[in-house]
Amino acid sequence: MTITGEVGAWNARGNAASAVVARGLTKVYGQGDAAVHALRGVDVSFETSAFTAIMGPSGSGKSTLMHCLAGLDAVSGGKVHIGDVELTGLNDKQLTLLRRERIGFIFQAFNLLPTLTAEQNIRLPLEISGRKADQDLFDRVVETVGLRDRLGHKPTELSGGQQQRVAVARALISKPQVIFADEPTGNLDSRSGAEVLSFLRTSVRELGQTIVMVTHDPVAASYADRVIFLRDGLLVSELMRPSPQSVLDTLMKLEA
């Protein structure tokens, strides 16, 4: 409990420009004896135009935290704000529309619809919400991730790295308030992984995008501006301007 208080204090700093804020977040799976407390009261905020990584050992609740923040999963207690919208009171339809308008996603695998071409996949979120793609933005995004000559290909004709780059482009194209990335490099070799991570960092630097990334890879986390650490459903530590080594050290301390 002492650690929670400490972290809470850290987070209180400078959240005037926060894209995502969670207060007293709890998540319980199951009931009675079988109840699993995945989140035990998490207070955290994510600054606008920042690249934040969420880390923690397996079972620490990092994926659950991301799902709750993104409105993919209902919380058991506490509040989540995305910009000025509070997620916790919304019904499924409102949540869906919120995801459509304000959130981008990059998953570890299975990011793309196999029936659509790369270009169709990139444009999919806009099409679903019936918005017109900004052609300049589209060109810039495609240029950034280097997919110009791959646009007409189906996902099965793309390498794993290319598929993730399509996913990044898709997340960027709708200019969401925040992009949630769940182990985006988990399935990639280190070179492709590095590529994808630098695209993510570039999009934060140049497009002012806000990104929250869940990862268990210290190297991946080191691309972020800030790393927060979870253990047993609690926020336990935080690191600004991380290096792979400093992330690894913090993790070692947590595992001990």
Binding site: A70, L72, D92, K93, T96, L97, R99, R100, E101, F105, F107, F110, N111, L113, P114, L124, P125, I128, S129, R170
Partner: peptide, 16 residues
């Protein structure tokens, strides 16, 4: 299943 979930995450409503 996963494809449907992806579409839902990207903002496809249940009726859609």
């Amino acid at each position: 299943t996963r494809e449907s979930a992806l579409l839902r995450a990207l903002g496809l409503t249940r009726p859609q």
